[in-house]
Write a protein that binds this DNA or RNA. Structure first.
Length: 599
DNA sequence: GCCGTTTTCGGCCCGACTGTTTTCAGTCG
């Protein structure tokens, strides 16, 4: 099983933690949901190599998905003796295993399998075109235990001698084996969208092409994408495939069939183009957008109605009864159209059945941006330049929130400079029309759980964002002590980029969201979705949990220049994935209404 | 391994592409 986007629900950073060595998290003082999920993913991989019952394997993967979609920490659920089997896909046995992992730090079932199958064997699954069956043959018949072993065996021509293997397989493995490490890398949604949308725009130039759309995880607006999917309708698939093959972003064509072409882009990411007849566009778009888990439920529902859904349409017997649009496919199985951002098999079907699908927030709903920097700290533009740029983008109000002094590298402000800065802001505000400017501060929560600026200074601010920048690797207890102190500080309005993670580069702090969100709700503190594509912090799961607590969410760009506002859409996408409506997002309100939400 | 107002047993989504094959298994999405 390759770790593509449809497969693992756990984070990229967990991925490396997972394969680099022990799956046991020594750095945490509680067991993270993602880590438990990664245990079950690994167990599923090992069982697959062993040739276990595929439905048993799927049960482990389903369990892993549920776990990583659960905001409440399983650690807490175990210690408060909650019934884990109430989680979808968690039955008696998985509940028992979770309990074991949390209470003992051991996972007997996983450890037993790991003894039988070395970690290097699992690495082979990451090679394109190599799955559990082939790996099983490599390990059991040739005794290969690592990628290096496999490479040597290919070079020695050992593989081609095996039954069912040939020269081409050997060549393909040799070609892809060095890419195996790179394959696991996912690109940010920003990078994914840029590439996919460029190619979509190009395909639209092809006269024969009728409709083109981005699909896949990119259309669902996941934080990162493992590959790209594009769907087109055309009576003849040839022209769009030729055009894609010749596109300057494309490096090589990996596969080409009658309806499907797979290419590798120069950036290393792979892209699938699928060409279908117009009567199938909706069905194919649904199928190609995923998620896999969402599609399985749709197909199951069709089956219950004696219908069949595939990428060509909805069929009753031989007769196609829907497929031209996504709306008619959903309608055929008794569902309203579900926005792509919600298609993760979390709560969307429950909402759809109850008629309570949220009307998701959009970029045009956003009226204010409440996190940005100027030349006073590490920004590239002045107060006035930022305000003009914000106004040009249609914003009605902004908050200037430069860094506090602890962030010395960014020229953070002490009390004296900050007070002068606020005077400068007030001067700009006085001479500008059409946009309001709040005097804010992005104040560090120091390692010892005190604030970087004194209360009397914070009290003068219109808007205080409290953030962690340093000491992110502190034990969870200390992290929580810091966050709780900030939440309880009477002058703090919001927690910014809560975990401090940098997607794909840096693990976030060990935050207990159950405790934090409860405290935020009790103390009328808002939570930020930082829109920068490398942060997107809160993530979708925790933003949804914040909404459940009634906590107002603010989507902020954290702009450091006049171009910084462009990332707003990524923050909105994250909010949409969390199921947030404009009601849930505080900066969709007018400044007057927004101020009423402040404590 | 999970699940269930038809079920506590018998189901568990569906098709394209490739390579190795004379009809299919493995992989992938």
């Amino acid at each position: 099983m390759r770790y593509t986007e449809k497969n693992p629900p756990f984070r990229m950073s967990q991925f490396s933690l997972f394969y680099a060595g022990q799956p046991h998290p020594t750095k945490y003082d509680c067991m993270k949901n993602e880590v438990i999920a990664s245990h079950f993913e690994m167990l599923a991989d090992l069982l697959e190599i062993q040739g276990a019952n595929p439905f048993r394997i799927r049960a482990y993967r389903n369990g892993a998905r549920t776990i990583s979609s659960t905001s409440e920490s399983l650690d807490d659920m175990v210690s408060s003796e909650k019934d884990l089997t109430e989680l979808t896909g968690i039955g008696k046995d998985l509940a028992r295993q979770i309990h074991e992992i949390v209470t003992t730090g051991k996972h007997v079932a996983l450890e037993a399998l790991r003894k039988e199958i070395p970690g290097g064997v699992l690495d082979m699954l990451r090679i394109q075109g190599v799955g559990p069956k082939k790996v099983s043959v490599f390990f059991n018949e040739l005794g290969l235990r690592s990628l290096a072993d496999l490479k040597a065996a290919c070079e020695a021509g050992q593989l081609a001698k095996l039954k069912g293997f040939g020269r081409k397989t050997e060549e393909s493995i040799l070609q892809n084996i060095d890419l195996a490490a790179k394959q696991s890398e996912r690109v940010s949604i920003a990078e994914a969208r840029a590439a996919a949308e460029a190619i979509v725009d190009d395909l639209k130039q092809q006269a024969e092409v009728e409709q083109v759309s981005v699909a896949g995880s990119c259309r669902r607006r996941r934080e990162t994408c493992g590959d790209l999917d594009i769907l087109a309708t055309c009576s003849d698939p040839g022209p769009p495939m030729d055009r894609l093959a010749a596109h300057p972003l494309v490096e090589t064509v990996l596969q080409r069939g009658d309806t499907k072409q797979r290419v590798r882009l120069k950036t290393g990411i792979e892209l699938d183009l699928r060409v279908v007849p117009e009567a199938s566009f909706g069905a194919a778009l649904l199928y190609f957008t995923g998620s896999k888990e969402h599609n399985i439920v749709v197909r199951q529902r069709a089956k219950d109605l004696n219908l069949k859904v595939n990428e060509y349409g909805v069929f009753r017997g031989e007769e196609q009864i829907a497929g031209r649009t996504e709306e008619d496919v959903y309608a055929a199985v008794g569902l309203p159209w579900i926005p792509p951002e919600l298609r993760e098999h979390r709560r969307e079907f429950e909402w759809a059945d109850a008629g309570t699908l949220p009307k998701l927030v959009t970029v045009v709903d956003i009226q204010g941006d409440l996190h940005m920097h100027t030349t006073a700290s590490d920004g590239a533009a002045t107060i006035e330049e930022m305000a003009l740029a914000a106004k040009a983008r249609g914003l009605k109000y902004i908050a200037i929130t430069d860094h506090s002094k602890r962030v010395s590298m960014a020229n953070g402000l002490d009390a004296e400079r900050l007070r002068q800065h606020w005077k400068d802001i007030q001067n700009v505000r006085a001479r500008m029309s059409g946009i309001d400017i709040l005097c804010g501060i992005e104040c560090d929560i120091l390692e010892d759980a005190t604030m970087d600026l004194a209360d009397d200074v914070l009290a003068e601010a219109d808007w205080v964002i409290a953030v962690l920048h340093y000491g992110l690797k502190q034990p969870g207890k200390q992290i929580m002590k810091r966050l709780m102190a900030a939440v309880k500080n009477p002058h703090v309005d919001i927690i910014g980029h809560c975990t401090g993670r940098m997607i794909g580069r840096r693990e976030g702090a060990d935050v207990n969201f159950t405790d934090l969100l409860k405290a935020a709700a009790d103390n009328s503190v808002m939570m930020e979705i930082n829109a920068h594509p490398s942060r997107l912090d809160l993530d979708d799961i925790h933003a949804a949990a914040a909404k459940d607590q009634g906590i107002p969410i603010v989507i902020s760009t954290d702009s450091h220049s006049v171009n910084g506002f462009e990332v707003l859409e990524y923050g909105v996408d994250q909010a949409r994935r969390a199921g947030l409506t404009s009601e849930d997002v505080a900066n969709t309100k007018s400044l007057k209404e927004f101020r009423e939400l402040l404590k």
